[in-house]
Simulated scan of single mutants.
Amino acid sequence: MVLRTGPMPSAQPSLNADLAREVAARLIAGHSEQLISFQLSGYGAPDYIQKHIQLARQNPFFQGASAISDMVQRQNWILETERASQRLHPESRTIPRHERLSPETFLKEHYSVHRPVILTGLVDDWPALSKWSPDYMEDKVGRDTPIELQKGRESTKSFEIDKLKLKTQIPFGEMADFLRSGKPSNDMYVTANNGAANRQALAPLWEDFSDIPGYTQSTSENDGFLWIGPQGTLTPFHHDLTHNLLIQVAGRKKVHIVPSYEEARMRPIRKYFSQWSLDDMLAAPAERRPQLLECEIGPGDALYIPVGWWHHVIGLEQSYSVLFTNFLWPNTYTNAYMGG
């Protein structure tokens, strides 16, 4: 038998997991130890809370998380300086319109500096502008041709996050009938997310539009995405991993846009979605809400949305749109974390 000599080890206080999480979160947020003890006094005496603070600071996992938090806070600081500087620009609170803007000017004043713009006069020769309607599309595509779309969007509040679960195949004629009814709805919508499945089925419609010389270039994998929906479609706040050129063919859409440097105020979830609804954002105190830009686009308008900029889109009328991401300039920004 081996006898232990010397003083007995001091008893360690029991760890309260809920308190530990609260302490860690407040330390990461930069709260003082005195404030944390006051905020969490409901968990026990100051000494008990102080012991949890000490354990947190000694924990290597917390130390790693703290280092990442410092890095994120520095990045947020850089974004705040960018925000302050950008708001000095005379166009920082509006989305300008430019008629037949040259590709060189677009690259210099918008694409390379991430500044949205509505371009007009670029697609005036597209047959789609005068032809696209439920009847015309049904005749071109075929009433019985199966297409993929999101169906049942009104059955869940998280329809955008759950869009993969809502993918459904129906005959194009069913969609045409739905559009002809004129009923406002967010329940059925053909979006860019359905592009890969629909490229062959909707191929005849590609005869009615084309690339924009000096702006885009066609490739076998990337020559446009179609959006087809009734009045009342809604795409909540999110950002994409590419620069986008949203070209309105028929109908009108209202678009709200938030700059990428407002990241800290956008309450992001699932990487590129936001917890904000438009109504909540408009009702929030000015100091809490991000800067919000608003525009309306109609037939022939091409809205440039820079990569990383948040946007919210409402279909004011039955609407047909073409989305291009195949710019002549670099447009690949996915990485191991921000996977597309």
Rank of each mutant, 00 (worst) to 15 (best):
D177I: 01
A128N: 04
V117G: 04
K163H: 13
L282W: 01
S130N: 14
I147N: 08
K163F: 07
L40Y: 06
I212T: 06
I161C: 06
Q86N: 14
Q150F: 08
A203S: 14
H311N: 06
R267K: 15
I170H: 05
E80W: 07
S41V: 05
A11N: 11
G152W: 01
L55F: 11
L119W: 02
I314H: 04
P184N: 05
F106D: 05
W77H: 13
D223W: 07
E287T: 10
C295W: 00
V117Q: 02
L205K: 10
N222F: 01
R267G: 05
L27P: 09
G195I: 00
E82L: 14
T325G: 01
D47A: 15
T325F: 02
E148N: 08
D125C: 04
Q73K: 14
F62L: 12
Q200K: 15
Q275H: 11
S220W: 10
L166H: 09
Q39I: 08
L55D: 11
P13A: 08
N193E: 13
L149R: 08
G121M: 03
E148Q: 14
F178T: 12
I170F: 01
D139C: 12
E80N: 14
G339I: 10
K253Q: 05
G30L: 06
Y337V: 15
D124N: 05
E82H: 11
P330W: 03
W126D: 07
G42N: 11
R21K: 14
A192H: 12
A11L: 14
L278S: 09
S220C: 00
G30P: 09
P236V: 00
D125V: 05
D240Y: 09
S69K: 13
Q248I: 06
A176Q: 10
E294F: 05
L122N: 00
R267Y: 01
Q200Y: 04
Q318F: 00
F172W: 07
D223I: 03
N198E: 11
W329R: 14
Q169N: 12
D162K: 15
E154Q: 13
I161V: 12
T216G: 03
G152N: 03
I305S: 03
L19H: 08
P306V: 07
P213N: 05
S112H: 03
R100H: 04
P330I: 04
M266G: 06
L246V: 11
R115S: 11
S133T: 15
I161K: 13
A192F: 07
M175W: 06
Y333E: 03
D208K: 01
T145V: 15
H98T: 10
R100P: 01
L129W: 02
P13T: 07
E80S: 13
F62Q: 10
P184L: 01
A176R: 09
L88F: 03
S69R: 15
E160F: 10
G339K: 15
S32Y: 01
M175R: 03
